[in-house]
Structure formats: structure tokens, C-alpha cells
């Protein structure tokens, strides 16, 4: 067992881990931040996406030990300070960007990473960026629409296909 310390959603967090402890397990099982979902065993679904030092990573495919000293952001830290939904979360609600909600934490974290680098993405930029985030419910269309809306762009023209 080894000790790790990191900043999670702005607060210091530490715990005892094994070599094999995944960042997703550390967040969910030790810090009880169960908003980060684990949807697969093959690093393909993206439900577990968090930000580590500002970039999107699959927390199921990174050892907790590798995040020692890192700045980690999860879905639990995304809401505004007063507890209201942030712009991306609100857009998901407004545009029906979720159904069962299982993929949503990863979708929101990927969207946040995209908009940080590319504040006004095109529709194809959004679709390309979400290649590693699988949704089995929505057909993606309203997710794309929500992210376009969150970037402040007019989504009236994005008709349902």
C-alpha cells in the first residue's frame, strides 16, 4: 500500500492505494465520488472521463498512483458555486442530451475539455471529439446539440435527423 495525495475538485484528497488501484476506483470507492461511471472493461466507452491537470483522460485507464500530486476534476465539481447547473449541464437538460444518464458524466467532462480548447466548435468538431464517448440511448444528436448550445451557438438549424 502507498499513500497518494491529489487535488480533487479544488480540495485536497488523499488515501492508501495498491499499485493496481485505478483512478476511477480511487474516486468512486475511496472518495465516494460515484458520479464518475465505469461502463466497460476495454477503455472504449468514456463514461469514466475526468480531467487530470486540465486534460480529459479515461480514469479507468490510469493508475491512481499516476495521479499523485495531480489536479483532478470530476463531474461533482462542475456545478456553479451556488449549486446550479453549469452552462454545459444546463444545456444537456434543455436539449434532452440524456436519457438514462449513464454516459452523461463522461459526456459533460469531454464537452468541457473540448470547449476549453475550442470555444466555438463546428458540429463535426463536436462529433469527432466525442469519438471515445459511447451513448446507448440518445443517438448522440441531442448531445451534440447541447454542446453546440453550450458554446453559445445557434442550434435552431441543427434539425433532428
Amino acid at each position: 500500500m502507498a499513500q497518494v495525495t491529489m487535488t480533487v475538485n479544488g480540495k485536497a484528497a488523499s488515501g492508501e492505494i495498491e499499485g493496481r488501484t485505478l483512478l476511477s476506483s480511487f474516486l468512486r470507492d475511496q472518495l465516494k465520488l460515484t458520479g464518475t461511471h465505469v461502463g466497460c472493461d476495454t477503455s472504449q466507452c468514456g463514461a469514466c472521463v475526468v480531467h487530470v491537470d486540465g486534460v480529459a483522460v479515461k480514469s479507468c485507464t490510469m493508475l491512481a498512483a499516476e495521479a499523485d500530486g495531480a489536479d483532478v476534476a470530476t463531474i461533482e465539481g462542475q456545478a456553479n458555486a451556488d449549486g446550479s447547473l453549469n452552462v454545459i449541464q444546463q444545456a444537456f437538460q434543455d436539449h434532452h442530451g440524456l436519457q438514462c444518464g449513464f454516459c452523461t458524466p463522461g459526456m459533460v467532462m469531454s464537452a468541457a475539455a473540448l470547449l476549453k480548447d475550442n470555444p466555438k466548435p463546428s458540429e463535426s468538431d463536436v462529433r469527432e471529439y466525442l469519438e471515445g464517448n459511447i451513448c446507448r440511448c440518445t443517438g448522440y444528436h441531442n448531445i451534440v446539440k447541447a454542446i453546440m448550445a453550450a458554446s453559445g451557438q445557434d442550434v435552431g438549424a441543427i434539425a433532428a435527423e
Binding site: 468514456g46 486534460v55 480529459a56 483522460v57 479515461k58 490510469m62 469531454s110 473540448l114 469519438e131 471515445g132
Partner: peptide, 9 residues
């Protein structure tokens, strides 16, 4: 290669 999260690691 892969997707953005894969490319970041």
C-alpha cells in the same frame, strides 16, 4: 489515433 482521452495518455 483513438480518441482525445486516449491521445492525452
Amino acid at each position: 489515433i483513438g480518441d482525445p482521452a486516449v491521445r492525452n495518455r
